Computed example of a mutant assay.
Amino acid sequence: MSVAVSLLCNVFYMIVFPNCKINLGLHVTNRRADGFHDLETVFYPLSVNDALEVISPGTLQFGSSGIAVPGNAHDNLCLKAFHLLQKDFPTLPRVNIHLHKHIPIGAGLGGGSADAAFMLQLLNNKSQLGLSEAQLIDYAAQLGSDCPFFIANKPCYATGRGEVLEPITLDLSGYSFLLVHPGIHVSTSWAFKQLTPQLPAYALREKIQLPVAAWKGVISNDFEEPVFQAHPVLAGIKEKMYMGGAVYATMSGSGSAVVGIFPKNKIADILWDASYRVFKIR
């Protein structure tokens, strides 16, 4: 009976919808000996989603649709997530994976990290691996600095490389969000090279507790200055959001998506370039 149950749980079809994140404040505080950087930020989940379809048993194939996914399919983080678990669970059955990409790539929204984290969770649940959230976070940290957040997938104050997570109370359901991506790709490695790490005067953990209307000029993203200098159009997008009534606006991560927080259901009707990808989250 136990063998039959084990085999049955490895036959499945499932589709999940990995969501994106935004950074509310981002400070690069130290360059580490391992070449990475320490930072502090607040991650907040938003409902702009990819669609991840997994079928078992399969032949370990990966396909995609929607936004073109750059690079070799064999290097996709979803496949890397599978191989990472398979090292410790050799009997993990092969699967077929299809990813419909909707979250803009290279935009500071963590879409690839979300896909990988959701893949870990799906395999854990459907193959009954019995991994705890803490164990999944450890696996996720091996795939990328943003990946652990998507295991928790709730507002978190993050330090270290972004993998040290502290859940915080931050409810923005009383606001609407406008997310604009102009199609500009910002190299993360280039962006880090533009910064001189330093500790902020006050920890972001304290500043995020201020009323949202008080965030402007107080909660900042270290990457904005060099990225806006290289791509002035991004500064223009942020300014348009403020002119349109945003209570707070910021670039997410190292860019290039810009997010504005508006009073509930009062997102300004702003005319954007037709090539921009615009998301309204009410």
Score class of each variant (00 low, 15 high):
Val54Phe: 04
His83Arg: 15
Leu46Gly: 01
His83Ser: 12
Lys80Arg: 15
His185Val: 08
Phe118Tyr: 15
Asp273Trp: 06
Tyr248Arg: 09
Ala246Asn: 04
Tyr276Ala: 03
Ile55Lys: 14
Ala81His: 02
Thr41Gly: 12
Tyr13Pro: 04
Met119Ala: 03
Leu234Asp: 00
Cys9Ser: 06
Phe17Lys: 12
Val28Trp: 02
Arg94Ala: 08
His98Ser: 00
Glu166Leu: 13
Lys266Tyr: 02
Ala191Asn: 08
Ser2His: 14
His102Tyr: 10
Pro70Glu: 01
Asn30Ile: 01
Leu77Met: 07
Gln198Gly: 05
Ser220Ala: 10
Pro104Ser: 06
Ala268Phe: 08
Thr91Gln: 14
Met14Lys: 09
Ala230Val: 04
His185Gln: 10
His100Lys: 15
Ile281Val: 13
Cys147Ala: 14
Leu85Phe: 10
Gly58Ile: 05
His100Trp: 06
Arg94Ile: 04
Asn124Tyr: 02
Asp146Lys: 09
Leu120Met: 10
Ala68Gln: 15
Phe279Glu: 07
Ser275Ala: 14
Tyr157Leu: 08
Glu206Asn: 14
Pro197Gln: 14
Pro148His: 12
Met251Cys: 03
Phe36Thr: 10
Phe192Cys: 10
Gln142Cys: 02
Pro104Leu: 10
Val28Leu: 09
Gly217Trp: 15
Met14Thr: 15
Ser132His: 07
Pro93Gln: 11
Ile208Lys: 13
Trp215Val: 08
Val259Lys: 02
Ser220Trp: 00
Ala214Asn: 12
Val54Trp: 02
Ala4Tyr: 03
Pro197Ile: 12
Gly112Cys: 08
Gly111Ala: 07
Asp146Trp: 13
Asn49Ser: 11
Ile97Met: 13
Arg94Pro: 00
Ser113Trp: 13
Leu204Tyr: 09
Thr169Asp: 15
Pro232Val: 09
Pro155Trp: 00
Ser145Asp: 00
Trp215Thr: 08
Leu85Val: 04
Tyr175Arg: 10
Glu166Tyr: 07
Pro18Lys: 03
Glu239His: 15
Leu122Trp: 02
Pro18Val: 07
Ala203Gly: 06
Asn96Ile: 02
Leu26Met: 10
Gln209Ile: 00
Asp146Met: 07
Leu143Ala: 07
Gly144His: 07
Ser56Arg: 03
Ile184Cys: 04
Phe149Arg: 03
Asn76Ser: 01
Ala213Thr: 12
Asn153Cys: 12
Lys216Thr: 08
Phe82Ser: 05
Leu85Cys: 05
Gly174Cys: 11
Gly130Leu: 00
Gly244Leu: 10
Glu224Gly: 06
Glu206Lys: 11
Ala235Glu: 11
